[in-house]
Simulated assay, not measured.
Amino acid sequence: MATQNPSIKLDPKYDHYDFPTTAPHKQSGHPGHTTPEQDAQVFQLRTKLEQAGYTERLDTLTLLRFLRARKFDVALSEKMFVDCEKWRKEFNLDDLTRNFDYKEKAQIKYILLPSPLSQSDEPKDGRPVYIEQLGNIDLAAMYKITTSERMLQNLAVEYEKLADPRLPACSRKSGQLLETCCTIMDLKGVGLGKVSSVYSYVKQASAMSQNYYPERLGRLYLINAPWGFSTVFSVVKGWLDPITVEKIHVLGGGYQKELLGQVPAENLPKIFGGTCNCAGGCALSDEGPWTDPKWAKPAKWQEAAKETVIDNQNTNPGTIPDAGDKAPAQKPVAVETGDEINAAPALQ
């Protein structure tokens, strides 16, 4: 049963939440803290999208994220949503989320850690924690075991899993709506020789995040920032939303106190000053409320996959055109394409 939101009129057609729907902090435009005008803008945006033929992802929480990302300008929010849906279709994202198998992940972790290093069970505000070690980037070595296309696919799938089932499970456990994650980017080892590749990566990361996953960043810590990084960051800030910039904290080597103020020591890897030491390594750990039966529930994309399964056991062969007796059963094949990095997850 959906948790009732005291300030937002939930739409019975689209809003089928089984987790809290009120944001923990009183911020304008956030669930539970909207004005009548903002509620009307949600209705306007949904109506426009329905008229354009869209039927998925029209729930109130999703539309509010797109509206906040565009300062509640309905026309701009509509364009952002439509562009996102076009990208999802071109990227074949729904199918990827259900079927993608990133077999090379265990090898890549020693070179690049774009996936969750420690999806924290219980940060002090309840959000998942996502960690990247940018100093480990070695593009030449990385391309020996994977392709940029598969990296992008993996990153998009991780975003989808953040949205569902990870954040809903965290919301159930904390008793309040959680829509964002805490990101830690470790810049240790980012020397002059790596500046260009890291700069390119961060810029591409922001593109995917800001364009297609708005309002998913809660806090971003840039730790072990090298001398002169503030100059580079001043350029980075130029293509980030001012609201996003306010969430970013640039720290040098003395970052432990601030990080431990956000993440409990038992959930922060030892290499960052915590006490977490996952079996097999934190880089491959997926511990969190989303793996705890008390809080975890199947993601909507998992349920959708079950609903579309077709049982052909009793199909009359005569009703299948051109299905010769010797035609072998075909299995879907994953296709790998592309050689250039165009985007990655992270900053918004």
Rank of each mutant, 00 (worst) to 15 (best):
A156L: 08
S197Q: 09
S196E: 04
L155F: 12
V190F: 04
F81Y: 15
P114L: 05
E158I: 11
K247A: 04
E303H: 10
A343L: 10
C278L: 06
T97S: 11
L187D: 02
L284H: 07
V74T: 13
L259Y: 03
P12F: 01
T55M: 01
S196F: 06
K103A: 13
I248S: 01
D339W: 14
D292K: 13
R219W: 00
G126Y: 03
D138I: 14
A205Y: 05
K306A: 11
R88D: 03
T180F: 01
H25C: 00
A344Y: 10
D325G: 08
P242E: 08
F91S: 05
G273D: 02
N267K: 11
V195F: 06
P20V: 07
D322T: 13
T3V: 13
E50A: 03
E90Y: 04
T146Q: 09
A207M: 13
E85W: 04
V195W: 03
K79D: 11
V157P: 10
H33G: 02
W301T: 14
D339V: 14
Q153G: 00
A329T: 13
A304E: 14
C182M: 08
I145W: 05
R219E: 10
G135Q: 07
F72T: 09
L217C: 10
E50S: 04
K326N: 13
Y54I: 02
G274V: 10
G189V: 02
S230Y: 00
L259D: 03
C170T: 03
A52F: 03
A163F: 06
P20H: 07
G193P: 11
Y159G: 11
T3F: 14
M80F: 05
R70F: 02
G280D: 07
V74E: 02
Q38R: 14
S148W: 14
M142K: 05
M80P: 12
H249F: 07
F81V: 12
L177D: 04
Q133P: 02
A169W: 07
Q41Y: 06
V263K: 02
